[in-house]
Structure formats: C-alpha cells, structure tokens
Amino acid sequence: MNRRGVGYGLLLALLLVAPYAVYPVLVMKILCFALFACAFNLLIGYTGLLSFGHAVFLGTAGYVAGHSIKVWGFPPELGLIFAALTAAALGWVIGSLAIRRSGIYFAMITLALAQLMYFVFLQVPFTGGEDGLQGVPRGKLLGFIDLTDDLNLYYFVLAIFVFGFWLINRTIHSPFGQVLKAIRENEARAISLGYDVAKYKLLAFVLSAGLAGLAGATKTLVFRFATLTDAHWHTSGEVVLMTLLGGMGTVFGPVAGAATIVTLQNELADKVGSLVTVIMGAIFVFCVLVFRRGIVGELGALYKKMTGAR
C-alpha cells in the first residue's frame, strides 16, 4: 500500500510540473487518452470484458460537449458534465445489448454498434460530417477562470484526470470492484454465489462509458474541435493497444501506455506518414506474442523477483 502511495505522489508531482518542461497541449492530450485508457481498463482489466468499440463514447461526448458549448452556449463545466452523462446513457444502451453475449461476441457486438454510431455521426448535420465540429470556444471555467490560457486549462484537465483516476481506483477497491474481479475470474461461480452478474457488468460498462466520455469531452475543449476520427474503430483499437502495452489490469498501466503511444504518434507523424499504422500494428503483435503483461506488469514482476531474491 505504501509503495502505491509513493507511486501516486510521484506521478502527481511529475504532472504538476510537466507543463513547464513539455508543450502543455501534448501533455493534455496524453491526460485525455490516459483517462480514456483507464476507463477502458476498468472493463478489460477488472471485469474481463473486451469492448472493441470504446471510441464511440469518446467521439459522442466530444460532439455533445462541442455542440452544447458552441451552439447552446453552455459553460465549459456544464458542457463536460452533460457530455459525460450522454456517453453514460449511450453506454447503458450499448452495454445492455452487448452483455447478452460474452467473450468474443461481446467484442464483435461493441465494435458493430460503435460502427453504427459512426455512420450516424457521418450523416447527421450537427457533427459537420467529414469536416467535423470546428471552432468550439474554451470559455471561462465557473465564469471567471479563462481557459483560453493553456496553463489554466492544463490544471483544469489535470484536475479532471485526477478525479477520473481516483474514481476508477475507488471503484476497483470497493466491494463492487471485488465482485467485478470475481466475475472476471469465474463468472459461473459469481452467479452461484447469488450475484446478479448482468447488473454488475452493465454498471461497470456504464461507468466506463461515462468516464471515456469525460475524456472525449475534455479533449474537445483542449483542441477546440471534435471529428469523426475520435469515433472511428482505429481509435477503439488504439485504446486497446495503450492498455495492452501499459499493462492490462494494472493501475498505472493505461497511463504509461497512453503516454507512450501518444508521444510515439506525435514524434512519428511527420517522419513516417502512413507507416505509423504499420508500427502500431507491429507493437500490437509484439505485445500479444511476448509482452502480454505490459510495461507496468513486467516492471512489477521484475520488482517482485528482485525483492524475492534478496
């Protein structure tokens, strides 16, 4: 427990000073994707559900936040909350369909339903179709903090991330989270113990969708636009990769994975062009074949080995 406390402290200290060393917008992008990946990890790592369409929540909330702030004139904090709630509601609809099947079918259903929403976004007028929703104002937080300043916005985004991260950890270590783990380990046993497994799965799905939505809405605020890319299945694959690379079922894994992938994409984008996709695919294959525990998982194993040997 103490070790984890040190980890939290170090991460927070690092994030507090980060914008003075690195371009703040890049760190904000990492934070958004880290929250997205943590939300995804709540499902794959702690409930054993592989959602292959998680981008739909990121994308939907991005559009809802953008539209409500730009067109309806919502203040930013209200826009974010409204967008996260919308994503959670969508999560309830998609989740209640998807949990009717398990395992591999669950993955295919979430992917297909996400694709359905993608086509809807492509056609409905308010998303701006292929052009996306441009020019979303950042506005003033609570009416007096000017978010057009990158540093102000940074600390707001950091606060959102810390809140989301805390909520996920609180969930994992709560009795509810313990039941989720029991479902992951042995669903039949959990049912025989009298747990309403479907209800637990659905609740985890809704929570994950809502937090993924919060990440998407925040991302819109940072970049001032929402596009179809966020709802595309490529993005769903990316969040799987981040979590896999960082370490599924570990607390810090998704954060490490998101930081690695976003930085990598940022570095490579103008150097290798469309080969980025090939590299992402190769990392996928590499992780599945020989690196299944991910960065944090491997480090943890290494640490255990060293302290065990002593």
Binding site: L50, L275, V276, M280, G281, R292
Partner: peptide, 24 residues
Amino acid sequence: KLDHLYGLLLTFGLALMLEGLFTN
C-alpha cells in the same frame, strides 16, 4: 492456450500492418 481475446488482438495488429503497408 491463452484467452480467446489475444487471438483477436493479434490478428487486429496484423490487419493494421497489412492495411498500413498497402496504404503507404
């Protein structure tokens, strides 16, 4: 011998590689 999900993930990675290669 592993969870079915790993097969899906590996072949997803392969699909990305092939698609990226031809796109490039």
